[in-house]
């Protein structure tokens, strides 16, 4: 990924020298043409085209913001409900991600999910211990963690 971005910068500078104009506008145009060239020659690289990764990162950020808003609505419902009939508890959640920063991202996302909060990570990085406000309607939270979050993070890290 870093190599492709560097190549793109070099192409942009080549474009600037060809045009003999050194303004930011020329740089942006050159960057765009370099992007096109990289796109046509993407089959020759070892790694995949880097815009795909950028797209995955943007999607991850959007998921973060959506979860923040949803969880706030859930907290509002919990706090303003007249009767306090919740059943909180800590449950164990097995995860497939391995690297440290992936687990960091996942636990931040889980903390932002409605009604869940990470309490601890097991020493072998295989289980997250999650405190849930309402352990009964947990199934869709777990399935969304499993299906959408882990997949989105893997999309970035792969």
């Amino acid at each position: 990924m870093a190599f492709q971005i560097l190549l793109n910068f070099v192409l942009a500078f080549v474009w600037m020298f060809l045009k003999t104009s050194y303004t930011p506008a020329t740089f942006i145009v050159g960057y765009f043409f370099g992007l096109l060239i990289l796109f046509f020659f993407r089959g020759f690289f070892q790694t995949r085209f880097y815009l795909k990764r950028v797209y995955a990162i943007i999607r991850l950020v959007l998921i973060f913001i959506r979860e923040l808003i949803l969880s706030n609505l859930a907290v509002l419902r919990l706090v303003l409900k007249p009767k306090l009939d919740i059943r909180p508890g800590i449950f164990a959640l097995p995860i497939e991600l391995e690297r440290d920063w992936e687990i960091l991202l996942l636990s931040n996302l889980i903390t932002l999910t409605p009604g869940t909060l990470v309490v601890d990570v097991s020493p072998d990085n295989k289980t997250l211990y999650v405190h849930a406000v309402d352990i009964d309607d947990l199934n869709d939270a777990v399935s969304s963690i499993k299906n959408s979050f882990e997949k989105a993070i893997m999309e970035v890290s792969r």
């Binding site: 509002l76 919990l78 909180p88």
Partner: peptide
């Protein structure tokens, strides 16, 4: 604030405080 005052234990209070 209402959640931090009302909810019963530290973990549930943490939910309210850290999200809202």
């Amino acid at each position: 604030t209402f959640g931090v005052i009302r909810l019963p234990d530290i973990y549930t209070r943490n939910h309210a405080a850290s999200k809202a």
